[in-house]
Nucleic acid binder design. Structure first.
Length: 266
DNA sequence: CAAATTTGACCCTA
DNA sequence: TAGGGTCAAATTTG
């Protein structure tokens, strides 16, 4: 299902590019090429959906897998058009909360923990339009601290931690990886919640490059717009919020470009 | 020159 | 023990 959604979102991206081509009055050849790509993608997605439906009708699974919540492609387009909305997620694959809260992250002698260091949330986002290498801007400043080749994956996984980790011991981390089946889609896994914004509320006027909430909670807004009742921040993670804005994440793009540029997209 | 990124080595968990 | 996550020195960038 994830793969099909990826294809659909990819198609939506292409439609948007076609829209720009129209306004730029591109040549008929390039328009035709775009249309061909779009129709191929959607036909492919439709065929796959048909296969999926056949399978579903054939048998009922014991444990239904976590249901992805589709927030609609329009939402993605709005992200591209409206910078303030760039943050929102496209597909939420599910939310898993471990029994250790954010406060537990520092309780063990060795800080090197994994898999149990707070909330884990995985989202699928489309790469920014026009530049497949651009990572999703989630309005936080992240620092890359590692990259690894993952077994069975075409693309490496990049590891980021919150830029405020030093200043505020913010435990938030995220992993970004391109999907094998669709390099235009990125799987972003968030681990632990941001504690930094909690600190910056009181120091809002005295610091720079710290998360500041300039607008409404975009997540909630998208939920409202698309009646997405599942897309709710985990209640046990009161500080989990991707929506506060941070001025200037330009370097992030640079690192992303350098990260992916050596990978064959064909 | 400071800050950010890269990358090989190390560590931890399943 | 393999594979994934993190560290930290080296390198790059602004």
């Amino acid at each position: 299902m994830e793969e099909i959604l990826s294809i659909i979102f990819n198609g939506i991206n292409l439609v948007k590019e076609l829209e720009f081509s129209l306004s730029a009055q591109d040549s008929p050849e390039s328009l035709s090429s775009s249309l061909g790509s779009i129709s191929t993608l959607f036909r492919d997605a439709n065929e796959r959906l048909g296969i999926l439906l056949e399978r579903k009708n054939a048998f009922v699974p014991h444990q239904p897998e976590p249901k992805p919540v589709v927030v609609s492609g329009l939402d993605q387009m709005m992200m591209q058009i409206e910078p303030g909305l760039k943050q929102d997620h496209i597909v939420r694959e599910g939310v898993k909360i471990s029994d250790s809260g954010p406060g537990c992250a520092f309780s063990t002698p060795r800080p090197r923990r994994r898999k149990k260091d707070g909330a884990v949330e995985t989202v699928l986002v489309a790469a920014a339009m026009g530049n497949v290498d651009t990572p999703p801007d989630d309005n936080y400043v992240w620092r890359k601290y590692g990259q690894k080749e993952i077994l069975g994956s075409r693309f490496p996984r990049a590891y980021y931690r919150c830029n405020n980790q030093k200043a505020y011991k913010c435990p938030a981390k995220k992993q970004v990886q391109r999907l094998d089946e669709d390099p235009y889609m990125l799987r972003v896994t968030y681990r632990s919640s941001h504690m930094c914004q909690f600190f910056t509320i009181s120091t809002i006027s005295s610091t720079t490059a710290t998360p500041v909430n300039y607008g409404p909670n975009v997540h909630s807004m998208a939920d409202l717009m698309f009646e997405n009742t599942d897309s709710v921040v985990p209640s046990s993670e009161p500080y989990f919020n991707h929506d506060s804005l941070v001025p200037g994440a330009a370097r992030y793009e640079d690192s992303w470009n350098s990260t992916w540029q050596n990978y064959d997209m064909s």
